[in-house]
């Protein structure tokens, strides 16, 4: 009976300490060189993207990417540049979601990280920007 009790206590303590560990992980690791570099590149690109969001040429898609919504407001000569900008942004976003999942030891979290970001990009978009919901594009 004493063995049983000792085991019970040991398991209980272990369980509590593990729960404590899980609890202590209130933050995800985002301070890695790879994540910082992506963040900085995206921040610099934002100077070019912000007017596009404002004009409605580019919108925030529901899959955590940015998408050309209405290219007609962009002069024909600049559309190639616009597409390159979008492609670069989406490549960085994909890498960001992947790196966050990896930095936290769970590469399989990538899709969930993407979903979380998609939701927050849309929720935090400035008024006047176009965002994609389940029913299509809407202007905030």
């Amino acid at each position: 009976m004493t063995i049983l009790n000792t085991l019970r206590v040991a398991v209980g303590v272990l369980c509590l300490s593990l729960a404590g560990l899980a609890f202590a992980q209130g933050n995800l690791e985002i301070n890695t060189p790879a994540i910082s570099a992506l963040q900085q590149a995206m921040q610099q690109r934002h100077a070019q993207l912000a007017p596009m969001y404002g004009s409605g040429a580019v919108g925030l898609a529901r899959d955590g990417t940015v998408a050309v919504r209405d290219a007609s407001s962009v002069p024909l000569a600049q559309r190639g540049q616009l597409n390159a900008l979008i492609a670069a942004e989406n490549a960085d976003r994909a890498a960001l979601y992947r790196e966050i999942a990896r930095a936290n030891g769970h590469p399989e979290w990538e899709a969930e990280v993407r979903t979380t970001f998609a939701k927050r990009w849309v929720e935090r978009a400035q008024s006047g920007w176009w965002v994609q919901g389940a029913g299509g594009w809407t202007r905030k």
Partner: peptide, 29 residues
Amino acid sequence: WLTGCVTINIYFPAAAAEKAADRIIDEVW
């Protein structure tokens, strides 16, 4: 029991992810 406890760590931490997303969005935007 222990397996159950460890599983907590395997679940996606949605709240923490949202916080992390917000911190990055603050920076980028």
